[in-house]
Write a protein that binds this DNA or RNA. Structure first.
Ligand SMILES: [Mn+2]
Ligand SMILES: [Mn+2]
Ligand SMILES: [Zn+2]
Ligand SMILES: [Zn+2]
Lengths: 155, 155
DNA sequence: TTACAATTGAAAATCAATTTCAATAAGGAA
DNA sequence: TTCCTTATTGAAATTGATTTTCAATTGTAA
């Protein structure tokens, strides 16, 4: 797939080259697709969106690029229990954007929430410290998710 | 696989028949294996343990039986991010046994903790109420997990 | 004991994700 | 620009977990 400049942010090329990688049309395009809309997308969904603009892009490239963007800290990857990974853009700094999820087990809709997490994060810190000490774990991450039925799926 | 009585609890047969199912050797055996040791086991691990006693049991039967035991409320099933389901026995009532998990991302060891969850559960209830109201979800479940490196894997 | 439906196990199918490999394209050097 | 090296790509094959299919077997109510 040949290059076509201008759909990605200017810093992207530099950040890639900084670790010996190359800027390609697929990468620009996938980053562009991911940053354009809010949400948690499966690989197939990203693939479909990308194909609308470049039908020649392969599914494997989408897999590889999403993995790369996660490594670069631009995307987050989640497993919400339906057996397929979901990717979302990290907007602003990682700690700024920190949030938790509410998942509908019927239609797989995912809702971000940020309003109630201050208390949560504070408690998590405390728990983390206690657990670290007790079980001698070096804790790097946590997951808090609520599962239920969204308004539509309750009816 | 022919029946061989006596390795399962007496109420098991009744609970099965109550929903039109049958007591079989495979079911007795798998329940027995799961109740005998603490832990979070993959299907393959259960399969291996079961085969030591009855080499004729098929992997598919283990899959089906574990699913059945989850439906009956005797086992819990978790996904800890390594792409394979893990099953654990629920001991006592579901609320009595309620606990959260600490997972080593290197060796996949899983640790239960129950000591710090009172505060967690209390906060979760509050958050749950707020989220329900705000997003009109009927919340049925939650997941809290910490990920990190266990003592061995830190070195 | 009999009849019938539930259960089983081997093989095949599915599904997400990964690996392989030859062709292509990015980007530094000349 | 052109050349050269090497990263990237995409199609096809592979993997690994789980599910489905289906004929043979087995549990259980009558
Ligand atoms: Mn999110
Ligand atoms: Mn547990
Ligand atoms: Zn829904
Ligand atoms: Zn470990």
């Amino acid at each position: 797939m040949p290059r076509r400049d201008g759909c990605g942010p200017p810093w992207f090329s530099g950040q890639l080259r900084g670790c010996g990688r190359r800027l390609t049309a697929a990468r620009e395009l996938i980053l562009d697709v991911m940053s354009r809309k809010e949400g948690h997308f499966s690989v197939e969904e990203v693939y479909a969106a990308v194909r609308k603009q470049y039908p020649r892009v392969g599914l494997v490239t989408v897999y590889r690029t999403l993995t790369l963007l996660v490594e670069m800290g631009l995307l987050a990857c989640h497993e919400f229990g339906d057996g397929r990974a979901r990717y979302e853009m990290i907007r602003g700094s990682k700690s700024e954007d920190h949030h938790h999820h509410l998942v509908c087990t019927s239609c797989n809709r995912v809702v971000d929430y940020r309003d109630f997490i201050d208390d949560e994060v504070q408690l998590l810190k405390k728990t983390e410290a206690a657990l670290s000490k007790r079980f001698r774990f070096k804790i790097n991450d946590h997951v808090i998710e609520f599962y239920g039925l969204c308004e539509k799926c309750q009816k």
